[in-house]
Write a protein that binds this DNA or RNA. Sequence first.
RNA 1: GCCCCUGUAGUUCAAUGGAUAGAACUGGGAUCUUCUAAGUCCUCAAUGUAGGUUCGAUUCCUACCGGGGGCACCA
Length: 553
Amino acid sequence: MLEEMRHAVREALESAGVSDIEVVFEHPADMVNGDYATGAAMRYAKQAGRSPRELADTIVAKLGDVRGVAKIEVAGPGFINVSLKPSVIWSALDAGRASGDEWGGTTSGKGRKIMVEYTDPNPFKEFHIGHLVPNALGESVARLLQFSGAEVKRANWQGDVGVHVAKSLFVLLEKNITNPTIADLAAAYPEGSRRYDEDPAAKAAIDVLNKTIYERSDVRVNDLYDKGRALSLEHFETIYKILGTKFDFYFFESVGGPRGIEVVRAHPDIFVESDGAVIFEGEKYGLHTRVFINRLGLPTYEAKEIGLAVLKREAYDFDLTITITGNEQKEYFRVVMKAMELALPELRGKLAFKTNGMLRFAEGKMSSRAGNIIRGDDLIANVASAAKERSSESRAENHEALAQKVAVGAIKFQILKGASGKDIIFDKERALSLEGDSGPYLQYAYARTCAIIEKAKASGVSASFDAAQETSELVRHVYRFPDIVAYAQEKLEPHLVATYLIELASYFNSWYAHEHILDGGALQSHKVAIVEIVGKTLKNGLWLLGIPAPEKM
RNA sequence: GCCCCUGUAGUUCAAUGGAUAGAACUGGGAUCUUCUAAGUCCUCAAUGUAGGUUCGAUUCCUACCGGGGGCACCA
């Protein structure tokens, strides 16, 4: 139908003497302007030598015959607004209701193999709330791609070697801790970091220790390292489980480093010696120079990244790998990407990165070096306890489990509601409030649909649309869901889904407040069908955001 | 100094070059004997400044002002 409309508009424009035409139909932001609108008449008025409104009238005459269209109007400066027949809307929603979990999904990614790498915490350091940002974004991006029919693999890249590890181990060794706890690890890094900066002797010792760790040349160090690493990874795993992420691949810098060095050494034409280090001269490409192998012969983050690309390739024959990384690494990535394209030409065009914003605070900065960080699991626990206070009258069987789902939803939504790449101002008050535009708002609306459907079932009310009914803004908004998903997939932007869902829940709650659904009237079944499709849309939308959708709250 | 990102109600976010710039929080007010008040309804309030391109600019361009990030052996 959309194709038919585009075709008709194109023909009308052609006969008005316009060439080189691209017709775009969009969903008007304000629903009083119909289901679809195009600004084609305004865009091509000049070329046609006529006024926008006059040209629009000509186009409308042509559009009159399109099936499924109820009303076409020329409005404002020359918009052509199209309203669909209610039967078109109802049958689309009915198909959605019948299609199970597929509702809203697309096929644009069918046959593609995509790896998404995200979260990337470092063993021996805290999993702090800064890691929640790439995790939330990456998980949602992965799900958006899955919902396009692509085969998606999730990958996690972890810095299990490097100076940060040496700083932690230095402190643990000094204190003679042989069986560290998570708390020991959490305390060791900031202290080691401080010593490294303030005490030249400690710095020298840590640098030596760093090399020792890479070389695995000391039994006592190895033992402590292995224990600490395992403990960290186990701890991370408990957090992933709460967040709803399951990785297919884990890559480690200890493995990627040597592989990166191989690649760098094999391309002396691309990577050159300078001042004892091996560098890539980015200036030739409008970028800047970066060190890939340092003076001690150890791989820097840059070389490790190249090694990672090799490891990913060996693990999975991807068409595309997307790395989710912090904004502060944007320019670093540009340089490394350029170097990789040159050194690994077979991966050209298959590497992509997407940056997430930094989590900032209303009150001051957080830094794991300074030690004033908020741990990811602590934040979830804090928000969960706030959620639990509100759940005193909840119908959920397990208040503890519900509180955790609400907490994860609240935190993830706060991260995903804005466009990716922009910094996120973290406000603890706001995170704890659970009101307004929030994850819990969406979850609550979904739980509400479940409650109505349950009650309808119990009282023997079936669900079916009455195609003779007029449509409302609520159902026409539901109708847009697949297009919103497609757009979010194209842009890889979860926030498009997030803002859509807030509008949907708002329409639904408003309707719910004014309309008694199970009123025993003739339209009961019709209204239950609406509730069902709204619920399914919320459920699929929340899934795309990686937010749990509890059925009872 | 050079490069990149970013400035929208008091605050946190939306707005595919379009229509009256939408929400939420806060402030002021209303609303539960009726399917869940984590809800609903009313109300106050914004495009940093100056130019330019365009039929039309929050959106694109230039300058200025403010905020953030990056720029050789950290990740």
